[in-house]
Design a protein around this nucleic acid. Structure first.
Lengths: 138, 138
DNA sequence: CCGTATCCACAACGATACTG
DNA sequence: CAGTATCGTTGTGGATACGG
């Protein structure tokens, strides 16, 4: 987890990732929607590309010059549960007016949330957890 | 989510929360296990108590003077899915040796992970998501 | 053992101005 | 539109030293 935090522990990094998850691809849109300044957006986008969470892809609209678009890689998309869990927590505890954005399952239309579950499919609450030392524990 | 990040966007805050989740309650243990300096631990613990994620509770062992212990509040415990999702991501993408800590379901012994699911009980992947504007969208 | 006080370094961020 | 350059401010964090 400490390593994960080295990559995404800054406010702007998570906000950029949220926007990428929302489907934002263009520089100015990242800056505006995440409400961060352009220099910060530039720095963060560069780092996130370096770390393999986003990929820069040139594209060209007919008659326009080449632009860059930023999209989630698999590594970046795998961070979505973190983003959703964070939104959920913020909506529940810090947002009096209720969630500004609602996530739905495309197939059935039901609302989506992040939760803990075990390999047997049970839903797990935080105090049903047992901790065990894994292979990489020094 | 931006509000959530105002509370927990710092590296040390999440590491402290992880330790609290692991069951750490004492000042020195927080500093040592999260590998942060004592002043930072003190500052972060104070802020997390102010924000209602942890609660300070005096306790006294027989014959000892009063000590303080820090424990998760409901608000803090509700952050556990975020922590688990973050660990999972770090273990998968940044930790070549595999997970240092394994979480198990107390009842059935199976490993636990964070995932997205919908109100109908389906497991949901990141690209099965649809975004809708919620009540608090300005 | 449980912190606090001080000082310092560096990272994060915003504002502004500028370029292709 | 898509950035870069520079500057100043604040936040985050380590080191050290100190007090209950």
């Amino acid at each position: 987890m400490a390593r994960a935090l080295d990559v995404v522990s800054s406010r702007s990094a998570l906000l950029i990732m949220r926007e990428a998850f929302y489907g934002t691809t263009r520089f100015d849109d990242f800056a505006e929607r995440a409400d961060i300044s352009a220099p910060v957006a530039a720095a963060r986008l560069r780092e996130l590309v370096e770390d393999g969470l986003l990929e820069r892809e040139p594209y060209r609209e007919p008659g326009q010059r080449t632009r860059m678009s930023y999209r989630l890689t698999d590594k970046g998309a795998d961070l979505v549960p973190v983003l959703v869990a964070l939104m959920q927590w913020g909506d529940h505890w810090l947002q009096p007016a209720g969630p500004p954005v609602i996530l739905r399952h495309r197939e059935c239309g039901e609302t989506v949330h992040a939760e803990l579950s075990c390999a047997a499919g049970h839903q797990v609450s935080a105090d049903d957890l047992e901790l065990a030392v894994g292979p990489a524990r020094s």
